[in-house]
Design a binder for these strands. Structure first.
Lengths: 244, 244
DNA sequence: TGCCGTCTGTCTGCTGGCGCACATAGCGAA
DNA sequence: TTCGCTATGTGCGCCAGCAGACAGACGGCA
């Protein structure tokens, strides 16, 4: 087993104090998340929550027309399924594996039991951690709204590459331009053009389904402020205990 | 005093069970919220949370360029200042009074004391209610992201009018087209044009700073699916105890 | 090695919404 | 009633990104 398969690879799990960690770890189950796998469907009750280690999951909204937009990204910094924790049980979006990898999953009921443990106050570290993570997630969603309104396709692409990169162990994404277009809610041709520009500038390099980031600072310079706002907020709310 | 100034006019406060309500109500202070009043600033710690009765507050993000976009709307269905509850203390947006009115405010510390009451489990109704409200708010933000990506200015305007109308006692908004443009993050001229179309169609009527909705179903027909998604999610998560 | 499906590159309109510049008209205060 | 500020109406040029239609090219698989 590689280190990518230790629970501590997920920052939320890594940040738990020993006593809570001891209770939770035995209930976690390592699962493989293949590309395109749907972790939950819009409006459908969830069986599990997922703590990704080296997988990246997109929360996307599917419109009546079939068009899609990504709402947020979740990787090893977070958890998929906050609506279980929030009490809503379902949410009007889909959880789609966007980069294959692994996650630790936990039965929905096990999460609730841990949060509402009789006898203890509901003030465990897990609860606080999930609250803060949820706030960071809200910031990410809000910034997506801002970005969608004001920034160019190329800026959005840079922001998205950076957000994804932050959640991956390597600097290569296994990802076609068509998939990126779906995430951003734009045309594939537009992604081709912007990616071409970035490649010409030496910022990225790509071939058929693979994108390698060569010049991260260059990417940051071309991205809009949205990336930095989200990054700063995650760092502030979840000073990470995990590796990067 | 009019009924608009009873705490129960706010749906969250109205939904509290008697014992929690009794503890909280004495600590609530009725305040007037004039148009344009800033309840909190991006990145600044909040002194209070606000439970609006007949005021409507916009959560807006201000870009480096000075351009603005609304992230979400809060009225008598909710609370301004969830980041206090979430543990983040601040948030990268501004709380701006968009329609003058009243709200009950609560000291930040009083909210925390109530939520972390020693001895009791942190499972009070207020806590659950705020969690569910926060999930509904997330849906509103997410749908703003979707709408900003895929829908026309006119559809966005209709969605926004409906969301605002749902939070007001009357069917008239005191609101210039310029303010609406700032909320939606579009040009004022675009709002003028769309509003003109809606008036020609007999859906709304307006004069200098006043907009009256004449045909709500007509407005709903012209809005995108985003409004319905948000409305359904609020109704599902917070079956309202308050009047409407 | 060759084949075929899928991914990528490019072109030709077309249009919603932007930026700018003014003209006009309500409405509140004096 | 008049003045003046501010809100609204409108025209013009412009461009990012859309829609659709192909051509080419890579790469996995037989």
């Amino acid at each position: 087993m590689t280190t990518s398969e230790a629970p501590q690879q997920n920052h939320l799990l890594a940040a738990l104090p020993a006593n809570e960690s001891m209770r939770l770890l035995p209930q976690l189950e390592l699962v493989e998340l293949p590309l395109g796998c749907v972790l939950y469907e819009s409006g459908a009750p969830m069986q599990y929550v997922y703590f990704p280690t080296d997988a990246v999951v997109s929360l996307i909204y599917v419109m009546e027309s079939g068009a899609t937009t990504e709402i947020a990204l979740v990787g090893n910094e977070g958890m998929v399924g906050v609506s279980l924790f929030m009490g809503g049980e379902t949410t009007p979006s889909r959880g789609l594996v966007q980069s294959a990898g692994h996650a630790y999953r936990l039965q929905a009921q096990a999460l609730k039991d841990e949060l509402e443990r009789v006898g203890g106050r509901r003030s465990g570290a897990l609860h606080d951690l999930l609250l803060r993570y949820t706030q960071a997630l809200m910031t990410q969603i809000a910034q997506t709204a801002v970005c969608n309104r004001h920034h160019s396709l190329e800026q959005k692409l840079c922001r998205w590459l950076l957000l994804t990169l932050d959640r991956l162990p390597a600097n290569e994404l296994i990802m076609t331009q068509e998939m990126i277009a779906h995430m951003l809610g734009v045309r594939r041709e537009g992604v081709t053009e912007s990616a071409g520009n970035l490649q010409k500038a030496g910022v990225i390099e790509y071939r058929r389904g693979h994108i390698t980031v060569l010049d991260r600072p260059g990417l940051e310079a071309r991205a809009c402020e949205c990336y930095a706002v989200v990054k700063r907020e995650f760092d502030r709310l979840l000073p990470h205990a995990g590796a990067e």
